[in-house]
């Protein structure tokens, strides 16, 4: 912008104003839904159409947690998506490094093949995926039941089951997010000179020291970007939890939102808006945290 202004001092105001006007319009367009949801969630008598609340109240939020299982849904969502993100970051960090450094012939075919996971619509894969997970789940369930009693086994399977258990959903969510994360990390490591590691080798760093004190700090911007994308995308996923979870204790936020919407009697817009706003927050917060790293990653990475 400054160059532009300096180059043509006489004409600078009009294009500037136009640009700002256009940007403001676009921002407003993006912000309106958030604003709408926020307003409706604070309205004691929210309707389908947006209106200025006549009575302000936090009652909708209170009901999410007091009358419904809101806290449980938030925990489930955070736990499942957080674990999947963590898994993606670890695997993408290690795998991206290997893919960047290897000279193996299968490198390019592999990189394009994993993108397929991302390209195919998950809906099309649901049936075979469910079938595989169900088979695994049954085998696992039988094994667990051999070692523990029926009740304990059920409690354990809630955590490590492939169907209607945290583990299955975490693994599937991570799988969906891994390809993009691998690409991000591979590209990131491509831009990181080998000299860094070799200098550490010359200084006598062991493999673990090299990873902990050199590679991880250097890769942090890339990992943050990969983790951010994985988190936001997995957080927004609705189909997979819908299919893989059935127990009420395992419901996640989008499922809670969906089921509240389907209730038989009248639709409670205030309650839905409050739930929706709670659902929005983590993604917005995650973006706020990772923005700094994102800019670094996509504007040339680390310069030494």
């Amino acid at each position: 912008m400054t160059d532009f202004v300096l180059a043509r001092p006489g004409k600078s105001r009009r294009p500037d104003l136009l640009a700002y006007a256009a940007l403001s319009l676009i921002s407003a367009f993006c912000a309106v839904p958030f604003f709408w949801v926020l307003l409706a969630s604070l309205d004691g008598n929210a309707q389908l159409f947006l209106s200025w609340p006549r009575e302000w109240t936090l009652n909708n939020y209170v009901r999410v947690f007091a009358e419904e299982d809101g806290a449980r849904w938030v925990f489930n969502s955070l736990f499942v998506v957080g674990s999947a993100t963590l898994l993606v970051m670890v695997l993408a960090g290690l795998g991206g490094y290997a893919l960047s450094r290897t000279r193996a012939w299968w490198k390019q075919p592999f990189l394009y093949a994993i993108l397929l996971i991302r390209v195919l619509p998950p809906t099309a894969l649901v049936v075979p995926l469910y079938k595989i997970l169900l088979t695994l789940n049954n085998i696992e369930g039988n094994l667990v039941r051999i070692f523990f009693g029926g009740d304990t086994a059920r409690a354990i399977m809630r955590w490590i089951g492939f169907i209607d258990g945290y583990l299955g959903l975490i693994l599937v969510l991570a799988t969906m997010q891994l390809p993009l994360a691998l690409w991000i990390m591979k590209t990131f490591f491509d831009g990181l000179p080998r000299d860094y590691e070799e200098a550490a080798v010359m200084d006598g760093a062991t493999m673990l020291q090299r990873i902990r004190r050199v590679l991880i700090p250097l890769a942090l911007p890339g990992l943050a970007a990969a983790g951010l994308f994985a988190f936001i995308s997995a957080w927004g996923d609705f189909l997979l939890p819908l299919i893989l979870l059935s127990s009420p204790e395992l419901q996640t936020l989008p499922l809670g939102l969906f089921r509240a919407f389907l209730r038989v009697n009248t639709i409670d817009y205030g309650f839905l808006a409050a739930l929706a706003f709670i659902y929005l927050m983590p993604a917005v917060i995650a973006f706020g945290f990772a923005r700094r790293f994102l800019v670094q990653t996509f504007s040339g990475g680390v310069k030494g």
Binding site: D195, E198, A199, V201, M202, V214, P217, L218, V302, G304
Partner: peptide, 16 residues
Amino acid sequence: DKRGIAMVFQSYALYP
């Protein structure tokens, strides 16, 4: 690291 040799890299490889 046991050779008693040090190396200065072309890119310097200073940890940012």
